Amino acid sequence: MKNTIVGTLALLSAIAIANPIQAENLNHLNQLLGSKKCSQCDLSSAGLVLANLAGADLTGANLVNANLSQANLTGANLTGANLTGASLFGANLSGAILTDATLTGTDLRNAYLLNAQIEGVDLNSANLNGVKGISLEAGTAEQFHRWGVRENERGNYRAAIAHYHRAINLDPEFAPAYLGLGVIYYKHDEHSKAIANTELAVQLFEEQENQLGHQSSSQFLENMELALQIEADIEKRERGAANVGKFMGGVGSLLLQLLL
């Protein structure tokens, strides 16, 4: 029995020696939860789901792969923090300071970013699907357009539409965003919106002497209008066939009545 206990203690000691970072993480985690002050802390892979970290000092903290889903980070200071691969799904980051933070591959789906400070932050690889309150200062018209294209490819059409509109708010003459809206609206059978946005894209591309954009948008508009015309013709023929069927049925009833 003694040998077993001694062997177990030796094993635990060996694990502690071999993994000093894990012990340090635990100390830092306790520090954060106890005081909300953990500047420069190592909190990589920490489990902080639903944690109340409002106003916490996490400047320069290592939060790589940390799980902060639905955490309350209202007004938290995350200046220079490394959030690579971290999950902030549904987290409340309203008023948080994210200046110069690293958000490579960060999951920000459905997060709240109202009044968050995000100067010097690269959001190009972050997942922004459903993000709420994101400032127009978060990116350029080109960046919002790229995010829109990415969300469109993922099938997240609402998020894509929101990004395209942000691009247009930044640059009302940003033709690619109008074309992006035209494509999505056509997919969702909102044909009048699809045509209006595509026509505007064609006009802007032409004014800006963008030959590739003008050619692509013009071709899409032409094909869209052709497809809609074909659909209308088919519907008209089907409607006509249905009316003929009703007429023939009526004639049949009349003939039966004449035999009475």
Rank of each mutant, 00 (worst) to 15 (best):
Q22P: 12
S39G: 10
A18G: 15
C38P: 03
L58E: 07
P20K: 12
G34M: 11
G55V: 07
A56L: 03
L58D: 02
S35L: 04
G47I: 03
G60F: 14
L29P: 00
S45W: 08
N67G: 05
H28D: 09
L32K: 02
L43G: 00
L33S: 02
H28W: 05
I21K: 15
K36F: 06
A23C: 11
L32S: 00
P20Y: 10
L33H: 03
N62H: 14
A66D: 04
G60Y: 13
N25Y: 06
N65R: 12
S39E: 14
A54I: 06
G34A: 11
A56G: 12
K37Y: 06
N52C: 03
G34K: 02
L48E: 02
S44P: 01
L53Y: 08
G60T: 10
N65W: 13
V64H: 05
A51C: 10
Q22M: 14
V49F: 07
A18V: 12
L48A: 05
L48I: 06
V64A: 06
G47M: 04
L26V: 11
S44L: 01
Q31Y: 02
N52G: 05
G34S: 10
C38R: 01
D57Y: 10
A66V: 01
D57F: 09
K37L: 10
Q22R: 15
N52A: 04
D42R: 07
L29K: 05
G60A: 13
S39P: 09
L43E: 02
Q31D: 06
S45C: 05
N19V: 13
Q22C: 12
S39D: 13
C41P: 03
L58W: 04
L29H: 00
N65A: 14
N30W: 00
A66I: 00
V64R: 04
N30S: 06
S44I: 02
N25F: 08
I21E: 15
E24A: 12
K37I: 09
S45T: 07
N62M: 09
N19S: 14
C41W: 00
P20Q: 11
Q40A: 08
N27M: 04
L33F: 02
Q22D: 14
